[in-house]
């Protein structure tokens, strides 16, 4: 057996060498990719930090402690804390239904889940203005009852939920479909209830997929600009999220502060990237194990 595997490895190595490109072609491809990455990714990222710290660390920290910025950070966190768990729940429910059951209108549901990806974020924001705005369908009724949705936190949260809806479901559907439902059926025949089946059989098999979806969902929820910009109203210290705050500061030529706040989003991206790679690594390990 050992002999066979080494033979096999050798022959695949050989095949790889034969299928591979000459040295200069590989070198050219790799270096052009590196050049592209540094021009469009690394240099801008570095410039965000260098601009933010251009006037010293003290200005940087002061910019972050400014009252309006601080309230923008708080609003962004609030939006994420509400929309991510909701989308985790919706995404789980939708992918559970799609992967484990057969029903009419399944492909329609999948299309609907994908809808936020194919619609421009500005439109996503606009539909809420058309629904809940003063000129909108139920705007006057809302005003009569003194409920504020548009140009307030609820509108921002609704728009964010809409935009980030697909992330968890998109990640889980293929994963759950590939795992089939035999393990769940086995659990049911052994007398487990629906909830026991979910928490003891389904969940452990998809937990890394869930985490992956949640991280991407969170990154988008905190970084969303277009949809939020339409419904927010840009009231300083009230309805600005971090991305909107960056824009306002930048438009006021307050570059140091704008870049300082932008570093927060850049750091979020970096942290997301690290967790994402770690989760991918764990998922691959789990795949190998099963």
């Amino acid at each position: 057996m050992a002999n066979i595997t080494t033979l096999h490895n050798k022959s695949t190595d050989q095949a790889r060498r034969q299928l591979s490109e000459p040295f200069w072609v590989r070198w050219l491809l790799i270096s052009s990719a590196l050049l592209f990455l540094s021009l469009f990714l690394f240099v801008p990222l570095a410039s965000v930090f260098s601009e933010a710290l251009a006037k010293g660390v003290e200005t940087y920290l002061a910019a972050l402690q400014e009252a309006d910025t601080w309230s923008a950070i708080k609003l962004t966190l609030l939006v994420a804390v509400i929309s991510v768990p909701l989308n985790l729940f919706f995404g789980l429910a939708a992918s559970w239904a799609i992967a484990k059951f057969e029903f009419r209108g399944k492909s329609l549901l999948i299309t609907l889940i994908d809808l936020p990806f194919s619609v421009s974020p500005v439109i996503s924001g606009l539909i809420y203005v058309l629904m809940f705005g003063l000129q909108g369908w139920i705007g006057p009724w809302l005003q009569d009852h003194d409920i504020k949705i548009i140009f307030a936190a609820p509108g921002i949260i609704l728009a964010t939920i809409f935009v980030t809806f697909p992330f968890v479901a998109r990640e889980l559907i293929p994963l759950m479909e590939s795992q089939g439902c035999e393990e769940e059926e086995a659990a049911l025949t052994l007398g487990a209830s629906g909830l026991q089946t979910f928490f003891r059989v389904t969940f452990p098999n998809i937990k890394w997929g869930i985490l992956y979806g949640v991280i991407l969902c969170n990154a988008r929820a905190m970084g969303e600009f277009g949809a939020v910009s339409v419904v927010s109203g840009h009231i300083r210290g009230m309805t600005n999220t971090v991305p909107l705050q960056v824009e306002i500061l930048y438009n006021e030529y307050n570059y140091a502060a704008a870049f300082a706040v932008a570093t927060l989003l850049a750091l979020l991206a970096l942290v997301t990237l690290v967790i994402k790679s770690w989760v991918e690594f764990r998922m691959k390990q789990q795949e190998i194990r099963s």
Partner: peptide, 19 residues
């Protein structure tokens, strides 16, 4: 209900809980 039928079911591809 499957849960209350008290049947033992053995699947072709075992369906063991992999974790």
């Amino acid at each position: 209900n499957v849960q209350e039928r008290q049947v033992g079911f053995v699947f072709q591809h075992y369906a063991l809980f992999r974790h």
